[in-house]
Simulated assay, not measured.
Amino acid sequence: MNRTLIITGKGKVSATPDIVYIRFPILVNDVHYATAVKGLDGIVASLRNCITTNGINKNELKTSDFRVNTQTKWNDNTKEYEFSKFEAHHDLLLQLPFDTELINNTTNDIVKLERNIEFQISFGVKDSTIYKQLLIENAISDAKKSAAIIAHASDIKLKEILNINYSFSEITFRSDLNYSYDSCLMETNEKIMPDLNPDAIDVNESITITWRIEN
């Protein structure tokens, strides 16, 4: 039976954000289904027109979720839940390059629309492939260094690698920094965008390597 040494190496990479995600959770309430949906369509049309005037292709605004829920309320007289309203949701996502002027101009124009539209801003990395490769390389390098130190201190010899175990889940390069705009908190004519400067995005993963060893 082979004698083995099992080491887990840890990899870490830091990526500089180069894209911005702007999420728009649009909500319309109405007692009529058609009116609620038309209300959503009107807001989305205004939003698409707004981003177009800032030089952004309207097709860049993508739907991430659409649903219409029925809301009820309790009737003390009948002791039953009764229909209250339709709650229509249309969540959209706009991905832009990290261009401060473009972001400021676009969001400030959105804030000035007659329809109050709330949004959240987060940051990410457009091409994460190179960072994922570095993450694996760093984890393997860390495991090898640790194995070499242990082998030297224990007076054993590292032989061939018997197994490499890594099961990276879907790695997401997203910044922890999020900025939210609530239409209830600010006047529509205010310049609301601060000077956003997100930190680098740190991602950690691990790889476990098994070596055969000899004295």
Rank of each mutant, 00 (worst) to 15 (best):
K58S: 14
L61N: 05
I43D: 01
V44N: 02
T53M: 15
L61M: 06
D65I: 01
I43C: 05
K58L: 12
E60A: 11
N54G: 05
D65K: 14
L61T: 00
D41K: 13
I56N: 05
D41R: 14
L61D: 02
K38S: 11
N57V: 12
D65G: 04
F66C: 05
K62W: 02
T35F: 13
D41L: 11
T52H: 14
G55Q: 08
A34Y: 13
K38N: 08
A36K: 14
A36D: 04
F66K: 10
T53D: 11
T52E: 15
K62A: 13
F66D: 05
I43Q: 05
T53S: 13
K38A: 12
T52N: 11
N59Y: 06
R48L: 01
F66E: 13
K62E: 07
F66L: 07
I51F: 08
N54S: 13
A45Y: 05
D65M: 11
A45V: 03
V44G: 02
G39K: 15
I51N: 04
L40S: 00
K58V: 09
D41H: 09
K58N: 08
T63Q: 09
K58P: 09
G55F: 05
N54W: 01
S46I: 01
K38W: 06
R67Y: 10
K62N: 10
T52P: 10
L61A: 03
T35Q: 15
I51Y: 09
G55I: 05
E60P: 04
I56K: 07
A45H: 02
F66G: 04
L47S: 00
S46E: 04
F66M: 12
V37G: 03
F66I: 14
I51A: 07
D41I: 08
T53A: 12
R67A: 14
R67Q: 13
T53N: 10
C50V: 14
K58C: 02
S64D: 11
L47R: 00
V37S: 02
R67C: 14
V44H: 01
I43L: 10
N57G: 07
K62P: 13
N59G: 05
K38R: 11
I51H: 03
T63C: 06
E60N: 13
L47V: 00
N59M: 13
I51S: 06
